[in-house]
Design a protein around this nucleic acid. Structure first.
Lengths: 114, 114
DNA sequence: GTATGATACCTAGGAGTTCTATGTAGCTTT
DNA sequence: AAAGCTACATAGAACTCCTAGGTATCATAC
């Protein structure tokens, strides 16, 4: 059986990447570490998921990338939100809110008689 | 671009099916209609997703099925939670709660200086 | 000076879930 | 008898993500 926690990830990785980048340009490795740290390791971002997602977002024009040097003095590709990416972030965040609310309703609502 | 709302569904369909069945045995069509009604059509359950999911849950021993007659006088397969299914419901619900909370943290937490 | 570990990037191949599209059939209403 | 709703089912494709590997640089420990 696949990891149940992982399955939920579907669709939210892009959203969390966009949100992380909304604080400023960051490289892939930093995005992964931030999400893990911020969630007390509840969410773990695999590199095999992260980099393809970043490349896809770049192809879609949601982020742009430039090579630079990190605070650890290493070469890294810094991603930044484009205007389209910022717009998408808001759209996806709203979708997520509606979705999470809907799931909560299913998990909480009791069927009424009739 | 795929439907953003749909993408979030991943992994939660099983959970919502199990939850719906926790109120009592129901047939597939009824499960779909209940989830849609309960979420004001925010979540729409496609039959091409629902039936394979039900069959998978049956194979996994989470639900059992019996043919019966609906209130509309139609032949239908009624699914009921097994003991394993009820256990899985609790596990998945906890996973979901932890996951949704983690996503919320990413969407809300601002990076601190330092 | 040379292991070791952390940082940082990348891809191929496969697994798994969901959607689209389509088909079947019985019951009720018009 | 035609249409609409109820109800089940599957094949094939699309998409996301993981596993498992690989590359390279820098800092630290020995």
């Amino acid at each position: 059986m696949p990891n149940a926690s992982v399955d939920f990830l579907r669709g939210t990785l892009d959203l969390m990447i966009l949100k992380t980048l909304s604080w400023g340009p960051t490289h892939g490795y930093g995005i992964a570490r931030w999400i893990e740290q911020c969630t007390d390791d509840v969410l773990q971002v695999e590199e095999g998921s992260l980099y393809p997602a970043l490349h896809k977002l770049e192809d879609q024009g949601m982020v742009s990338a430039d090579w630079g040097i990190t605070e650890h003095n290493r070469r890294a590709k810094f991603y930044r939100l484009t205007a389209a990416g910022r717009k998408q972030l808001h759209v996806s965040r709203d979708y997520w809110a509606r979705f999470a609310d809907a799931v909560a309703k299913v998990l909480e609502t009791a069927p009424t008689a009739g």
